[in-house]
Write a protein that binds this DNA or RNA. Sequence first.
DNA 1: GTCTATATTTGGATAGAC
DNA 2: GTCTATCCAAATATAGAC
Lengths: 205, 205
Amino acid sequence: MSENTGILKASDTKLKIIKEASALFCELGYKGASVRKIASKVGIRESALYNHFKNKEEIFLEVASGIFSNPFSFDADEIKENALRGKPFLNKFAMQYKLLTFDKNNESMFRLLLIELLQNKELREKFTEEFHNKNIKMLSEGFFIMMQNGLIRSADPMIISYEFLSTLFYIRLQVTLMRFDALSTNSLATQFEKHVDFFWDSIKI
Amino acid sequence: MSENTGILKASDTKLKIIKEASALFCELGYKGASVRKIASKVGIRESALYNHFKNKEEIFLEVASGIFSNPFSFDADEIKENALRGKPFLNKFAMQYKLLTFDKNNESMFRLLLIELLQNKELREKFTEEFHNKNIKMLSEGFFIMMQNGLIRSADPMIISYEFLSTLFYIRLQVTLMRFDALSTNSLATQFEKHVDFFWDSIKI
DNA sequence: GTCTATATTTGGATAGAC
DNA sequence: GTCTATCCAAATATAGAC
Protein backbone atom coordinates (compact mmCIF):
# COMPACT_ATOMS: atom_id res chain seq x y z
CA MET A 1 0.00 0.00 0.00
CA SER A 2 2.75 2.42 0.92
CA GLU A 3 4.55 1.37 -2.23
CA ASN A 4 1.53 2.10 -4.38
CA THR A 5 1.13 5.52 -2.86
CA GLY A 6 4.69 6.33 -3.80
CA ILE A 7 4.24 5.10 -7.35
CA LEU A 8 1.01 6.92 -7.74
CA LYS A 9 2.46 10.20 -6.58
CA ALA A 10 5.30 9.88 -9.05
CA SER A 11 2.89 9.23 -11.86
CA ASP A 12 0.74 12.15 -10.80
CA THR A 13 3.65 14.55 -10.94
CA LYS A 14 4.70 13.25 -14.31
CA LEU A 15 1.20 13.74 -15.64
CA LYS A 16 1.10 17.23 -14.25
CA ILE A 17 4.41 18.00 -15.93
CA ILE A 18 3.02 16.80 -19.26
CA LYS A 19 -0.08 18.88 -18.78
CA GLU A 20 1.64 22.12 -17.84
CA ALA A 21 4.46 21.65 -20.34
CA SER A 22 1.89 21.05 -23.04
CA ALA A 23 0.11 24.30 -22.24
CA LEU A 24 3.38 26.25 -22.22
CA PHE A 25 4.71 24.67 -25.41
CA CYS A 26 1.43 25.45 -27.15
CA GLU A 27 1.54 29.03 -26.03
CA LEU A 28 5.25 29.82 -26.28
CA GLY A 29 6.78 27.24 -28.56
CA TYR A 30 9.68 24.97 -27.72
CA LYS A 31 12.22 27.67 -27.01
CA GLY A 32 9.78 29.95 -25.30
CA ALA A 33 8.68 27.35 -22.80
CA SER A 34 11.69 27.19 -20.54
CA VAL A 35 12.34 24.39 -18.09
CA ARG A 36 12.04 26.98 -15.36
CA LYS A 37 8.58 28.05 -16.42
CA ILE A 38 7.45 24.46 -16.68
CA ALA A 39 8.76 23.57 -13.23
CA SER A 40 7.24 26.70 -11.80
CA LYS A 41 3.80 25.91 -13.22
CA VAL A 42 4.02 22.37 -11.90
CA GLY A 43 5.00 23.73 -8.52
CA ILE A 44 8.39 22.03 -8.22
CA ARG A 45 12.03 22.97 -8.83
CA GLU A 46 13.79 22.48 -12.12
CA SER A 47 15.98 19.80 -10.64
CA ALA A 48 12.95 17.76 -9.66
CA LEU A 49 11.86 17.68 -13.30
CA TYR A 50 14.90 15.62 -14.09
CA ASN A 51 13.63 12.81 -11.90
CA HIS A 52 10.86 12.33 -14.46
CA PHE A 53 12.51 13.25 -17.74
CA LYS A 54 16.03 12.98 -19.04
CA ASN A 55 15.92 16.48 -20.47
CA LYS A 56 13.69 19.13 -22.02
CA GLU A 57 13.60 17.41 -25.38
CA GLU A 58 12.13 14.31 -23.79
CA ILE A 59 9.34 16.34 -22.26
CA PHE A 60 8.57 17.88 -25.60
CA LEU A 61 8.51 14.58 -27.45
CA GLU A 62 6.04 13.18 -24.94
CA VAL A 63 3.82 16.23 -25.39
CA ALA A 64 4.16 16.16 -29.15
CA SER A 65 3.16 12.52 -29.29
CA GLY A 66 -0.31 13.66 -28.25
CA ILE A 67 -0.75 15.76 -31.39
CA PHE A 68 -1.67 12.83 -33.56
CA SER A 69 -3.66 10.79 -31.12
CA ASN A 70 -7.01 9.59 -32.45
CA PRO A 71 -7.94 11.92 -35.27
CA PHE A 72 -10.67 9.93 -36.97
CA SER A 73 -12.34 6.66 -36.33
CA PHE A 74 -13.82 5.50 -39.61
CA ASP A 75 -13.53 1.83 -40.28
CA ALA A 76 -13.65 0.28 -43.74
CA ASP A 77 -17.27 -0.86 -43.44
CA GLU A 78 -18.41 2.50 -42.22
CA ILE A 79 -16.70 4.17 -45.14
CA LYS A 80 -18.38 1.93 -47.64
CA GLU A 81 -21.76 2.24 -46.05
CA ASN A 82 -21.66 6.03 -45.99
CA ALA A 83 -20.10 6.32 -49.40
CA LEU A 84 -23.00 4.45 -50.95
CA ARG A 85 -25.27 7.20 -49.76
CA GLY A 86 -23.17 9.97 -51.27
CA LYS A 87 -23.35 13.31 -49.52
CA PRO A 88 -23.71 11.89 -45.99
CA PHE A 89 -20.18 10.57 -46.37
CA LEU A 90 -18.88 14.08 -46.94
CA ASN A 91 -21.01 15.39 -44.13
CA LYS A 92 -19.81 12.85 -41.62
CA PHE A 93 -16.19 13.46 -42.48
CA ALA A 94 -16.53 17.23 -42.37
CA MET A 95 -18.43 17.18 -39.11
CA GLN A 96 -15.76 15.06 -37.47
CA TYR A 97 -13.20 17.49 -38.77
CA LYS A 98 -15.21 20.36 -37.36
CA LEU A 99 -15.48 18.63 -34.01
CA LEU A 100 -11.71 18.29 -33.83
CA THR A 101 -11.27 21.90 -34.86
CA PHE A 102 -13.32 23.17 -31.95
CA ASP A 103 -12.24 20.57 -29.41
CA LYS A 104 -10.11 22.30 -26.80
CA ASN A 105 -7.57 19.54 -26.55
CA ASN A 106 -7.15 19.04 -30.26
CA GLU A 107 -6.98 22.77 -30.74
CA SER A 108 -3.99 23.04 -28.42
CA MET A 109 -2.24 20.28 -30.25
CA PHE A 110 -2.96 21.89 -33.59
CA ARG A 111 -1.40 25.11 -32.34
CA LEU A 112 1.67 23.29 -31.19
CA LEU A 113 1.86 21.64 -34.57
CA LEU A 114 1.79 25.01 -36.31
CA ILE A 115 4.37 26.49 -33.98
CA GLU A 116 6.88 23.70 -34.34
CA LEU A 117 6.13 22.44 -37.83
CA LEU A 118 9.18 24.03 -39.39
CA GLN A 119 11.45 23.37 -36.45
CA ASN A 120 10.92 19.65 -36.15
CA LYS A 121 11.34 17.21 -38.97
CA GLU A 122 9.63 14.34 -37.18
CA LEU A 123 6.60 16.56 -36.73
CA ARG A 124 6.52 17.33 -40.43
CA GLU A 125 6.66 13.69 -41.36
CA LYS A 126 3.92 12.81 -38.94
CA PHE A 127 1.88 15.72 -40.19
CA THR A 128 2.11 14.52 -43.76
CA GLU A 129 1.20 11.02 -42.76
CA GLU A 130 -1.58 11.69 -40.24
CA PHE A 131 -3.10 14.90 -41.52
CA HIS A 132 -2.70 14.30 -45.21
CA ASN A 133 -1.95 10.79 -46.49
CA LYS A 134 -4.25 9.02 -44.07
CA ASN A 135 -7.16 11.32 -44.84
CA ILE A 136 -6.56 11.26 -48.57
CA LYS A 137 -6.58 7.48 -48.51
CA MET A 138 -9.79 7.35 -46.53
CA LEU A 139 -11.55 9.88 -48.71
CA SER A 140 -10.32 8.30 -51.92
CA GLU A 141 -11.94 5.02 -51.03
CA GLY A 142 -15.21 6.79 -50.45
CA PHE A 143 -15.10 8.79 -53.65
CA PHE A 144 -14.11 5.71 -55.61
CA ILE A 145 -17.19 3.90 -54.36
CA MET A 146 -19.41 6.85 -55.19
CA MET A 147 -17.99 6.93 -58.68
CA GLN A 148 -18.55 3.23 -59.17
CA ASN A 149 -22.15 3.70 -58.15
CA GLY A 150 -22.74 6.61 -60.46
CA LEU A 151 -23.29 9.10 -57.68
CA ILE A 152 -20.56 11.53 -58.69
CA ARG A 153 -18.88 12.59 -61.89
CA SER A 154 -15.79 10.86 -63.12
CA ALA A 155 -12.45 12.18 -61.89
CA ASP A 156 -9.30 11.02 -60.13
CA PRO A 157 -10.42 10.08 -56.60
CA MET A 158 -7.12 11.37 -55.23
CA ILE A 159 -7.71 14.77 -56.81
CA ILE A 160 -11.25 14.95 -55.49
CA SER A 161 -9.99 14.00 -52.04
CA TYR A 162 -7.25 16.58 -52.21
CA GLU A 163 -9.72 19.29 -53.12
CA PHE A 164 -12.12 18.29 -50.38
CA LEU A 165 -9.49 17.97 -47.66
CA SER A 166 -7.56 21.14 -48.44
CA THR A 167 -10.50 23.39 -47.76
CA LEU A 168 -11.25 21.62 -44.48
CA PHE A 169 -7.67 22.23 -43.42
CA TYR A 170 -7.84 25.86 -44.40
CA ILE A 171 -11.00 26.41 -42.39
CA ARG A 172 -9.38 24.75 -39.42
CA LEU A 173 -6.36 27.00 -39.75
CA GLN A 174 -8.50 30.12 -39.90
CA VAL A 175 -10.60 29.06 -36.94
CA THR A 176 -7.50 28.28 -34.91
CA LEU A 177 -5.98 31.67 -35.64
CA MET A 178 -9.14 33.54 -34.79
CA ARG A 179 -9.67 31.66 -31.57
CA PHE A 180 -6.07 32.29 -30.64
CA ASP A 181 -6.86 35.98 -30.61
CA ALA A 182 -10.20 35.36 -28.94
CA LEU A 183 -11.99 36.64 -32.03
CA SER A 184 -15.51 35.51 -32.79
CA THR A 185 -15.68 32.58 -35.17
CA ASN A 186 -19.30 33.29 -36.01
CA SER A 187 -18.46 34.06 -39.60
CA LEU A 188 -16.76 30.69 -39.92
CA ALA A 189 -19.16 28.63 -37.83
CA THR A 190 -21.05 27.32 -40.84
CA GLN A 191 -18.12 27.24 -43.22
CA PHE A 192 -17.76 23.49 -42.87
CA GLU A 193 -21.36 22.96 -43.87
CA LYS A 194 -21.09 25.43 -46.72
CA HIS A 195 -18.05 23.60 -47.94
CA VAL A 196 -19.89 20.27 -48.00
CA ASP A 197 -22.83 21.82 -49.83
CA PHE A 198 -20.68 23.50 -52.43
CA PHE A 199 -18.50 20.48 -52.89
CA TRP A 200 -21.35 18.04 -53.29
CA ASP A 201 -22.89 20.27 -55.92
CA SER A 202 -19.51 20.23 -57.64
CA ILE A 203 -19.25 16.48 -58.02
CA LYS A 204 -22.75 15.04 -57.88
CA ILE A 205 -24.34 13.77 -61.04
CA MET B 1 32.38 62.41 -51.59
CA SER B 2 33.90 61.14 -48.38
CA GLU B 3 30.56 61.81 -46.70
CA ASN B 4 28.68 59.78 -49.29
CA THR B 5 31.07 56.91 -48.91
CA GLY B 6 30.39 56.82 -45.21
CA ILE B 7 26.66 56.93 -45.66
CA LEU B 8 26.78 54.27 -48.33
CA LYS B 9 28.80 51.92 -46.20
CA ALA B 10 26.37 52.30 -43.35
CA SER B 11 23.48 51.52 -45.62
CA ASP B 12 25.33 48.53 -47.02
CA THR B 13 25.88 47.06 -43.59
CA LYS B 14 22.27 47.63 -42.65
CA LEU B 15 21.13 45.89 -45.81
CA LYS B 16 23.45 43.02 -45.13
CA ILE B 17 22.07 42.70 -41.61
CA ILE B 18 18.54 42.54 -42.99
CA LYS B 19 19.59 39.94 -45.49
CA GLU B 20 21.42 37.65 -43.08
CA ALA B 21 18.91 38.13 -40.29
CA SER B 22 16.14 37.26 -42.72
CA ALA B 23 17.84 33.99 -43.65
CA LEU B 24 18.41 33.07 -40.02
CA PHE B 25 14.92 34.01 -38.85
CA CYS B 26 13.46 31.94 -41.67
CA GLU B 27 15.56 28.96 -40.74
CA LEU B 28 15.56 29.15 -36.96
CA GLY B 29 12.64 31.32 -35.97
CA TYR B 30 12.79 34.43 -33.83
CA LYS B 31 14.27 32.84 -30.73
CA GLY B 32 16.56 30.52 -32.62
CA ALA B 33 18.19 33.31 -34.58
CA SER B 34 20.33 34.91 -31.90
CA VAL B 35 21.87 38.33 -32.21
CA ARG B 36 25.24 36.58 -32.07
CA LYS B 37 24.52 34.40 -35.05
CA ILE B 38 23.23 37.36 -37.03
CA ALA B 39 26.28 39.46 -36.25
CA SER B 40 28.55 36.56 -37.03
CA LYS B 41 26.95 36.00 -40.44
CA VAL B 42 27.19 39.69 -41.23
CA GLY B 43 30.82 39.62 -40.19
CA ILE B 44 30.64 42.17 -37.37
CA ARG B 45 30.35 42.07 -33.58
CA GLU B 46 27.04 42.07 -31.76
CA SER B 47 27.71 45.53 -30.40
CA ALA B 48 28.04 46.90 -33.92
CA LEU B 49 24.53 45.71 -34.72
CA TYR B 50 23.19 48.19 -32.23
CA ASN B 51 24.48 51.03 -34.33
CA HIS B 52 21.89 50.05 -36.92
CA PHE B 53 19.01 48.75 -34.85
CA LYS B 54 17.69 49.56 -31.43
CA ASN B 55 17.32 45.89 -30.56
CA LYS B 56 16.59 42.45 -31.92
CA GLU B 57 12.87 43.10 -32.18
CA GLU B 58 13.51 46.02 -34.50
CA ILE B 59 15.55 43.81 -36.81
CA PHE B 60 12.79 41.25 -36.89
CA LEU B 61 10.09 43.80 -37.66
CA GLU B 62 12.07 45.10 -40.60
CA VAL B 63 12.51 41.57 -41.91
CA ALA B 64 8.89 40.67 -41.32
CA SER B 65 7.72 43.72 -43.24
CA GLY B 66 9.03 42.01 -46.37
CA ILE B 67 6.66 39.06 -46.00
CA PHE B 68 3.74 40.86 -47.52
CA SER B 69 5.48 42.90 -50.16
CA ASN B 70 3.89 42.68 -53.60
CA PRO B 71 1.91 39.44 -53.67
CA PHE B 72 -0.30 39.97 -56.71
CA SER B 73 -0.69 42.66 -59.26
CA PHE B 74 -4.12 42.35 -60.80
CA ASP B 75 -5.84 45.59 -61.50
CA ALA B 76 -9.58 45.99 -61.80
CA ASP B 77 -9.58 46.08 -65.60
CA GLU B 78 -7.42 43.02 -65.84
CA ILE B 79 -9.74 41.15 -63.52
CA LYS B 80 -12.76 42.03 -65.56
CA GLU B 81 -11.12 41.22 -68.84
CA ASN B 82 -9.95 37.79 -67.70
CA ALA B 83 -13.16 37.01 -65.85
CA LEU B 84 -15.17 37.47 -69.04
CA ARG B 85 -13.21 34.60 -70.55
CA GLY B 86 -13.85 32.26 -67.65
CA LYS B 87 -11.22 29.63 -67.00
CA PRO B 88 -8.24 31.84 -68.01
CA PHE B 89 -9.02 33.96 -64.97
CA LEU B 90 -8.56 30.95 -62.71
CA ASN B 91 -5.46 29.93 -64.59
CA LYS B 92 -3.80 33.28 -64.35
CA PHE B 93 -4.49 33.56 -60.65
CA ALA B 94 -3.30 30.04 -59.92
CA MET B 95 -0.16 30.44 -62.01
CA GLN B 96 0.76 33.61 -60.18
CA TYR B 97 0.18 31.76 -56.94
CA LYS B 98 2.39 28.94 -58.16
CA LEU B 99 5.09 31.38 -59.14
CA LEU B 100 5.14 32.84 -55.66
CA THR B 101 5.20 29.38 -54.15
CA PHE B 102 8.36 28.43 -55.98
CA ASP B 103 10.03 31.83 -55.86
CA LYS B 104 13.02 31.61 -53.54
CA ASN B 105 12.43 34.92 -51.88
CA ASN B 106 8.73 34.46 -51.35
CA GLU B 107 9.35 30.97 -50.12
CA SER B 108 11.62 32.23 -47.36
CA MET B 109 9.05 34.74 -46.32
CA PHE B 110 6.33 32.13 -46.30
CA ARG B 111 8.45 29.97 -44.01
CA LEU B 112 8.98 32.84 -41.66
CA LEU B 113 5.27 33.46 -41.67
CA LEU B 114 4.59 29.88 -40.68
CA ILE B 115 7.23 29.88 -37.97
CA GLU B 116 6.08 33.06 -36.32
CA LEU B 117 2.38 33.03 -37.11
CA LEU B 118 1.32 32.01 -33.64
CA GLN B 119 3.93 34.09 -31.86
CA ASN B 120 3.15 37.43 -33.43
CA LYS B 121 -0.27 39.00 -33.48
CA GLU B 122 0.64 41.64 -36.03
CA LEU B 123 1.72 38.88 -38.38
CA ARG B 124 -1.60 37.09 -37.96
CA GLU B 125 -3.53 40.22 -38.75
CA LYS B 126 -1.46 40.93 -41.82
CA PHE B 127 -1.80 37.33 -42.88
CA THR B 128 -5.58 37.50 -42.70
CA GLU B 129 -5.62 40.74 -44.62
CA GLU B 130 -3.00 40.03 -47.29
CA PHE B 131 -3.28 36.28 -47.77
CA HIS B 132 -7.00 35.91 -47.28
CA ASN B 133 -9.22 38.98 -47.42
CA LYS B 134 -7.40 40.62 -50.30
CA ASN B 135 -7.46 37.46 -52.41
CA ILE B 136 -11.06 36.63 -51.56
CA LYS B 137 -12.08 40.10 -52.64
CA MET B 138 -10.19 39.85 -55.90
CA LEU B 139 -11.54 36.43 -56.71
CA SER B 140 -15.09 37.32 -55.74
CA GLU B 141 -15.16 40.11 -58.27
CA GLY B 142 -14.06 37.71 -60.95
CA PHE B 143 -16.56 35.01 -60.07
CA PHE B 144 -19.33 37.57 -59.84
CA ILE B 145 -18.62 38.69 -63.37
CA MET B 146 -18.55 35.11 -64.60
CA MET B 147 -21.88 34.47 -62.96
CA GLN B 148 -23.42 37.56 -64.50
CA ASN B 149 -22.27 36.37 -67.89
CA GLY B 150 -23.63 32.89 -67.46
CA LEU B 151 -20.24 31.23 -67.51
CA ILE B 152 -20.53 29.52 -64.14
CA ARG B 153 -23.31 28.13 -62.02
CA SER B 154 -25.02 30.27 -59.44
CA ALA B 155 -23.48 30.37 -55.96
CA ASP B 156 -22.18 32.83 -53.41
CA PRO B 157 -19.03 34.36 -55.00
CA MET B 158 -17.39 34.50 -51.58
CA ILE B 159 -17.91 30.79 -51.08
CA ILE B 160 -16.56 29.96 -54.52
CA SER B 161 -13.56 32.16 -53.84
CA TYR B 162 -13.00 30.55 -50.48
CA GLU B 163 -13.04 27.10 -52.02
CA PHE B 164 -10.70 28.10 -54.80
CA LEU B 165 -8.22 29.89 -52.57
CA SER B 166 -8.08 27.34 -49.78
CA THR B 167 -6.74 24.62 -52.03
CA LEU B 168 -4.10 26.94 -53.47
CA PHE B 169 -2.94 27.71 -49.97
CA TYR B 170 -2.83 24.06 -49.05
CA ILE B 171 -0.72 23.20 -52.07
CA ARG B 172 1.64 26.02 -51.20
CA LEU B 173 1.94 24.74 -47.66
CA GLN B 174 2.71 21.23 -48.83
CA VAL B 175 5.26 22.42 -51.36
CA THR B 176 6.95 24.59 -48.76
CA LEU B 177 7.21 21.72 -46.31
CA MET B 178 8.62 19.32 -48.88
CA ARG B 179 11.15 21.79 -50.17
CA PHE B 180 12.19 22.52 -46.61
CA ASP B 181 13.28 18.90 -46.33
CA ALA B 182 14.73 18.98 -49.83
CA LEU B 183 12.15 16.43 -50.96
CA SER B 184 11.13 16.26 -54.56
CA THR B 185 8.00 18.24 -55.38
CA ASN B 186 7.43 16.31 -58.59
CA SER B 187 4.22 14.82 -57.30
CA LEU B 188 2.93 18.32 -56.57
CA ALA B 189 4.35 20.10 -59.61
CA THR B 190 1.11 19.90 -61.56
CA GLN B 191 -1.22 20.17 -58.58
CA PHE B 192 -1.96 23.81 -59.32
CA GLU B 193 -3.04 22.96 -62.84
CA LYS B 194 -5.07 19.99 -61.69
CA HIS B 195 -6.78 22.21 -59.18
CA VAL B 196 -7.78 24.70 -61.86
CA ASP B 197 -9.05 21.93 -64.12
CA PHE B 198 -11.09 20.28 -61.40
CA PHE B 199 -12.42 23.54 -60.11
CA TRP B 200 -13.46 24.84 -63.47
CA ASP B 201 -15.35 21.62 -64.15
CA SER B 202 -17.03 22.15 -60.78
CA ILE B 203 -18.46 25.54 -61.56
CA LYS B 204 -18.71 25.91 -65.32
CA ILE B 205 -22.09 25.69 -66.96
C1' DG C 1 30.98 52.53 -37.39
C1' DT C 2 33.45 48.83 -35.38
C1' DC C 3 35.98 46.88 -31.82
C1' DT C 4 37.04 44.87 -26.86
C1' DA C 5 35.29 44.19 -22.59
C1' DT C 6 31.74 43.56 -19.59
C1' DA C 7 27.24 43.72 -17.26
C1' DT C 8 23.11 41.21 -16.68
C1' DT C 9 19.68 37.81 -17.45
C1' DT C 10 17.98 33.60 -18.68
C1' DG C 11 18.17 28.79 -19.70
C1' DG C 12 19.59 23.86 -19.26
C1' DA C 13 21.48 20.74 -16.23
C1' DT C 14 23.88 18.44 -12.03
C1' DA C 15 25.46 17.39 -6.93
C1' DG C 16 24.26 16.33 -2.70
C1' DA C 17 21.33 17.08 1.64
C1' DC C 18 16.84 15.69 3.34
C1' DG D 1 11.12 12.56 -5.12
C1' DT D 2 12.00 17.19 -3.86
C1' DC D 3 14.85 20.68 -2.22
C1' DT D 4 19.00 24.18 -2.04
C1' DA D 5 22.94 25.51 -4.19
C1' DT D 6 25.60 25.92 -7.97
C1' DC D 7 27.69 25.48 -12.58
C1' DC D 8 28.04 26.57 -17.20
C1' DA D 9 26.63 28.21 -21.55
C1' DA D 10 24.25 31.33 -24.31
C1' DA D 11 21.75 35.42 -25.06
C1' DT D 12 20.58 40.56 -24.99
C1' DA D 13 22.51 44.71 -24.35
C1' DT D 14 25.75 48.67 -23.00
C1' DA D 15 30.27 51.46 -22.17
C1' DG D 16 34.08 53.29 -23.87
C1' DA D 17 38.48 53.02 -26.73
C1' DC D 18 39.88 53.52 -31.58
